[in-house]
Simulated assay, not measured.
Amino acid sequence: MKNTILQLENITVGYGNKKIISSINTCISENEFIAILGKNGAGKSTLINTILGYQNELEGDIFLHQQSLKKLSKKEIAQNIAIVLPRLNNVPKIKVSELIEIGLVGQQTEFNKKEKEDFIIHILDLVGIQHLKNNYATEISEGQLQLVMIARALAQNTKLIILDEPTSNLDIANQYKIFNLLHELKSKTSQSFLMISHEADLALNYTDKIWWIENGLLFEDIPEQIAYEKQIIPKLSDQNLMFNSDENRYSTSTNNTLSINVKGNSELAYWVKNGFVRNGFIIKNNSKITIEITENNIIFGEKIFVNIQEIITFIQQQYEKYNHNGS
């Protein structure tokens, strides 16, 4: 059985007399990667600030390693929980290795010079940024800097690392890199990660659990169960994305009567479907117009198309004719 790092018992968070999330009963165990999802204003940051001891809970108690946060100083909390923010307001002009070394300051373990160097190299290896060791923090990319900040948090050697939207300012490649990194790290270390995120698709693919906040309550479960029961994709997209059983995916809802059947399970088929949906078509298995997709070709009747735009344009021009006679 996994050890519990953080326990929330009957917690209510908010400001003054205003309750934002009530009756929270949950925990974080070792080797877990959890994402906090919810609409803007749901209370994600308020919850994190309460866990970090920045503000007091309105009701209930939080236990860190079975000790009440109320009995711990801010220094003691910081020695047990590391935090990664969306970005540094002021990036110091120091080397990456020196920035990571700052994470060692709060540690209770004493290092000699050789042990410190070896530990920093170990952290750099874990995050995969050995090549940045001697680079200055002011001279690396935003994505690289965020990896360095994760490395600095790891260097604090805490059981729990909280990340406040660490991918919000990054391109999609770096978003994937960070989610994948955290997924791997929780298996390689005994540390756990609690992340606020707006990247619901990545959170659903990489995390062990989702904390979903809605209407002043927190719900938790594995990603698939939460996504299904709470319909989080339609809700986060303001009902713009709905599940389409014919396409077997979430897509934009449309009242358009144009329909088409796309047969095939290849990557090309995926993008052909996407192109037709984007142009106002509904993907339907019983449509009178059927396109077959092989690995590299798009086949309609006796015609072969190798370009997605060509088949979309052709169907748009010929739709009425083929829709009426079923050819």
Rank of each mutant, 00 (worst) to 15 (best):
E115H: 02
S97E: 13
N112D: 13
Q79N: 13
A82G: 12
I121C: 06
E115Q: 07
E115L: 11
N135F: 11
I100R: 01
K75R: 12
E101M: 10
L72A: 06
R87C: 08
L104W: 08
A78N: 08
L69S: 04
I81D: 15
L72H: 06
S97F: 08
N112C: 04
Q66N: 15
N89C: 05
Q67F: 11
V105M: 05
V84I: 07
Q107K: 06
I81E: 06
I77F: 07
I94E: 01
E115Y: 05
I77R: 05
V96Q: 08
S73L: 03
P86H: 07
Q66P: 02
V127I: 05
L126R: 02
Q108W: 10
L69E: 00
E76H: 14
S68P: 03
Q79G: 14
K116Q: 13
E110R: 14
G128M: 04
N135T: 09
L99R: 01
Q67W: 02
V96W: 09
N112K: 04
K93T: 12
L64G: 06
L104I: 13
L132E: 00
G106Y: 01
E115P: 00
E76N: 08
L104H: 10
V127E: 02
G106Q: 01
Q108K: 14
F119H: 07
L85H: 13
L72E: 07
G128P: 03
N112R: 05
L126T: 00
L69M: 04
L72V: 12
N80Y: 08
A78H: 04
I83K: 05
V96K: 12
V105N: 11
N90K: 07
K71N: 15
K133S: 06
L104M: 15
L85I: 11
T109R: 14
K95V: 07
D125F: 00
G103F: 10
A82E: 06
D118Q: 12
E101L: 06
R87E: 14
I123T: 06
G128I: 02
A78C: 14
V84M: 01
L64C: 09
K95P: 08
L88Y: 00
Q108A: 11
P92F: 10
V105T: 14
K116C: 10
G106W: 00
E76W: 04
K113F: 13
Q130E: 13
V105D: 09
D118C: 07
H131R: 13
L104F: 11
K95D: 10
T109N: 12
A82S: 15
Q108E: 14
L132D: 01
D125G: 05
E98R: 00
K93R: 14
Q67S: 15
I100K: 00
K133H: 03
Q107N: 10
E117N: 08
I81R: 09
E76I: 06
I123D: 03
V91N: 06
K93H: 13
E98A: 06
S97H: 09
S97M: 14
K114N: 14
K114R: 13
E76R: 09
V127P: 05
L69W: 02
L124S: 02
I123S: 05
A78Q: 08
I120F: 02
N89W: 04
I129Q: 00
K71P: 03
L64F: 05
N112Q: 07
K75N: 13
